[in-house]
Design a protein around this nucleic acid. Structure first.
Lengths: 331, 331
DNA sequence: TTGTAGGCGTTATCAA
DNA sequence: TTGATAACGCCTACAA
């Protein structure tokens, strides 16, 4: 690949002149400029951003550490981050952490060595102190989790969302709501659990009843089967699932054992993934504005990079309760 | 950020010695090594891969240019690519092209300037000759499209898949199959259209009937409404949609006008996205192994990078017809 | 076993 | 208006 030197030689000028026309700064004779541009084209010259980065300290690259891009809640966030990044001439390195602390750490290290200028951290799973240790002074924005001591944060109020979801069930007339929770190691799962408990206590129809699962469709399915095999008074008439994937599992369980979602069993999910609208019954859920959160997180990050400040920003996005058929007695 | 020089100074050795312990090559006294390591830790030293890249010519970074990560068919591919990449110590830069030639070109240019070692190009939309011009001699692998003149390619036989889908409808007893096609500018859309036509001609129950749409749920919905308002003999009893998103739109249209998917109208999609299993009726579709294709594409790319050969590899992956409720007369 | 020096592709500072 | 030249952070001969 041709270098600036090759171009200079071919154009019969010095490298500094070539550099000037590349960056369009400083004086350069119109004629010379033409020659240089010709030379560049003839050689198929493309400046090396890595060499540039070495001298400028800028790589125009940020990292995106996200649990799993193939999990339907995350692509929207990723798209938001990338859209905002490219609009500012930045690229995004995609990292799937699988909610694993070691993977998160490994990626963060790599990103630092690559001299990424910052990172958007989604659903981080590590202890904050450990995180700050590896992340050093690289700017970052946390999505879906509030960071206490550093960085900006962007999230929705999971507890209040879960509270709202559960409350909605009671208000629709369901009397006994079970919660299928996500893994306790995931923060948002715990927050949702709290919100559920709060609503249960407030209405006080029954004790909280929780079954721990894994945020996956299969987990929701099996948990629902377990819950629904109970007979008598302790049998729930509604399930609040910790996320939409598990809620879809619940719907499948209903089909399996031949009861009608919505009618025989109220179901609410969380996230508002696209397919929640297409299930049968369609799924009532708490929608999180993933795209906007990603976009905003990236904006905050780039802002911080350009203009590193002392201030720390925390933004709580509004969720939205999407009422659909899975919480309608009659449909 | 501390440099190798700082480390050298603190450890009281030369930079080359530090370099030796970093890369664990050449002789270095056990004692010295310990000192150096200490110094590195004290300073929080992290080697700059961009400086390294400048001298070694390796960036351990590849690009992934994909139409839209928030479109449910693509995250699996992306995950496959990233998994294979990270297993080989490579990072992936995510680029959303939105099927736009200019965006594709813009990203490719950026990736070259960043000295990415290669790129996985998904669903590329550009003329091959234009593509090769911008891509220069950067290794690449094309997914979901066969490249004629350069690079490796990985795809499924869209035409045969569409043929299989359509044929399945006839064999299930449907008599008149309409095709809602994707945008004609997208290659796979055209291939699927061909496959449809082939099956129609083979069974010869009726003329091909095509309505052009946009690969989106809303497009499928509107197209289906248009198709279904026909009365009489020309009214179809089945629809083969160019992808699952449009097929989901078709299902919604059925609901809207009160006919039963599967029974009153056979429906087949294409792609096998996750949510196709959760619709009502569940969607018969042609499944593409996205994760495996992504993984394989990345493998081929890294192989090409390490061992640039003259040979060009083309791999056609098998699709799978998933028969579900949307093509069952009785259910 | 360790150090010196040149170079990787650019940009930026000075002179000319 | 142009050209040397010294960085940028690291690696790799080559010497010592």
């Amino acid at each position: 690949m041709a270098t600036i030197k090759d171009v200079a030689r071919l154009a019969g000028v010095s490298v500094s002149t070539v550099s000037r026309v590349i960056n369009d700064n400083g004086y350069v004779n119109a004629e010379t400029r033409k020659n240089v541009i010709n030379a560049m084209e003839n050689l198929g010259f493309r400046p090396s951003n890595i060499a540039r980065g070495l001298v400028s300290g800028k790589t125009y690259t940020i990292g995106l550490v996200i649990p799993d891009i193939s999990n339907p809640f995350f692509p929207d966030i990723a798209r938001g981050v990338e859209d905002e990044a490219i609009a500012n001439n930045y690229n995004v390195i995609l990292c799937n952490s699988d909610w694993k602390v070691e993977r998160e750490t490994m990626y963060l290290s790599l990103l630092i060595e690559k001299r990424c200028e910052g990172v958007v951290l989604v659903g981080s799973h590590s202890e904050e102190s450990d995180l700050l240790k590896v992340i050093g002074k690289m700017p970052f924005v946390s999505v879906d989790r509030e960071m206490v001591h550093a960085g900006h944060s962007v999230w929705v109020d999971n507890e209040f969302g879960a509270y709202t979801a559960t409350k909605h069930l009671y208000e629709e007339g369901y009397k006994r709501v079970v919660h299928i929770s996500g893994p306790p190691s995931v923060r948002s799962a715990n927050a949702r659990l709290s919100g559920y408990k709060k609503a249960v206590r407030e209405f006080n129809y029954h004790e909280p009843q929780i079954i721990e699962s894994d945020f996956r469709t299969s987990g929701g399915y099996e948990s629902a089967l377990k819950v629904l095999e109970q007979q008598g008074d302790s049998r729930p008439d509604a399930i609040f699932a910790g996320n939409d994937l598990m809620a879809i599992g619940v719907i499948q369980a209903c089909e399996k054992i031949g009861i009608k979602g919505g009618v025989d069993l109220g179901i609410v999910g969380f996230d508002g993934i696209g397919s929640s609208a297409y299930t049968s019954p369609s799924l009532t859920t708490i929608f999180q504005p993933g795209y906007e959160m990603g976009r905003r997180a990236c904006h905050l990050l780039l802002d911080e990079i350009v203009n590193p400040g002392k201030r720390r920003i925390k933004e709580v996005f509004n969720f939205e309760l999407l009422v659909r058929a899975s919480t309608k007695w009659i449909k």
